[in-house]
């Protein structure tokens, strides 16, 4: 551990959790968002903590250390295409070289490019403190715009991204330009079938409300249906989303963003034969 004035540079996770439990510090991963304001905060520098940099996988999960950079995630051979697609449109190389998935999600912005993918894929987040660990779905971690369930003595340690069924994805980011754009609307969908029956019809909307939107009760309408049955309920399905999505006012009109959301959702269904 190196301590310089109010900055802490831990050598490993145990040291990091100890400081996090004893001091009032802001966890610093990539810095690309924190340093825009560049205030004289007490930082806990996590960008070199080996346990937080690790990317690995087991049979069920891709495990992404919270301080792994987007470049590292992009270069990892086991990273699914849906996540790569989002990273490809996330900022520019210099930002991806520093920015981390942990930071992107912990900012709890509804525009966070990687959050959308973690929402649609039912990714779990592992949090740790000196006292122990807990695992939360991302929907329970992000509690509002800029708000998370992270306690003052905890750190976000790892993402557990379920590997199964990610191949057939739909992803669109609508922004003002190609590189470095902040999304106006982002949409991610995952569609799976077993035999003739739908087993997953997940849809997540970013940049629309205070948090990424996902409506599991609507999705449940499609589960177990055949494609012809799904076609029969398509308009009812779309109407539910049409009613539920109420974009907050932003730089771009709410009407426009609502329209784009619905177009993308319909295209997602159409592309999957519904």
């Amino acid at each position: 551990m190196v301590i310089v004035e109010n900055g802490y540079i831990p050598a490993d996770l145990a040291e990091a959790l100890k400081i996090r439990g004893e001091q009032t510090v802001i966890p610093y991963a990539g810095g690309t968002d924190l340093m825009v304001d560049a205030e004289d905060h007490a930082y806990l520098f996590l960008n070199k903590v080996p346990e937080l940099k690790r990317i690995s996988e087991d049979e069920t999960y891709l495990k992404i250390g919270a301080a792994a950079t987007f470049t590292e995630i992009l270069n990892y051979p086991g990273t699914p295409e849906i996540l790569k697609a989002a990273i490809h449109y996330l900022a520019a190389p210099a930002i991806r070289n520093m920015a981390t998935a942990g930071g992107n999600v912990s900012n709890a912005s509804p525009k966070a490019d990687s959050s959308l993918i973690f929402y649609v894929s039912d990714t779990l987040l592992k949090l740790a403190s000196a006292k122990g660990e807990r695992i939360l779905p991302i929907e329970d971690f992000i509690t509002g715009r800029g708000k998370t369930a992270l306690q003052a003595d905890e750190l976000l340690v790892e993402f557990l991204m379920p590997k199964k069924g990610l191949e057939n994805y739909y992803y669109e980011k609508v922004g003002a330009r190609k590189a470095l754009a902040i999304s106006r609307v982002a949409f991610a969908g995952l569609f799976n079938m077993e035999g003739e029956r739908i087993t997953r019809c997940a849809a997540a909307f970013g940049s629309v409300a205070d948090v990424v939107l996902r409506f599991r009760d609507f999705e449940a309408m499609m589960i177990g249906l055949t494609l012809p049955e799904a076609k029969a309920v398509k308009s009812e399905f779309l109407a539910k989303y049409d009613q539920a999505i109420v974009p907050i006012r932003g730089r771009v009109s709410a009407d426009y963003r609502k329209h784009v959301c619905m177009n993308l959702l319909e295209d997602f269904l159409t592309q999957n034969g519904i």
Binding site: V2, V4, G7, I9, Y28, G31, T32, D33, L34, M35, V36, A38, Y43, F45, N47, K48, T71, A91, A92, P93, A94, I95, N97, M98, L180
Partner: peptide, 27 residues
């Protein structure tokens, strides 16, 4: 704010915008 790249440097051979890098992160 990490948008323009005029402050680019290489950190351990990797391109970075030095305006959004805190000194403590490059020890």
């Amino acid at each position: 704010e990490g948008e323009c790249g005029a402050c680019s440097v290489l950190i351990d051979g990797v391109l970075a915008n030095s305006c959004v890098v805190a000194l403590g992160s490059i020890h």
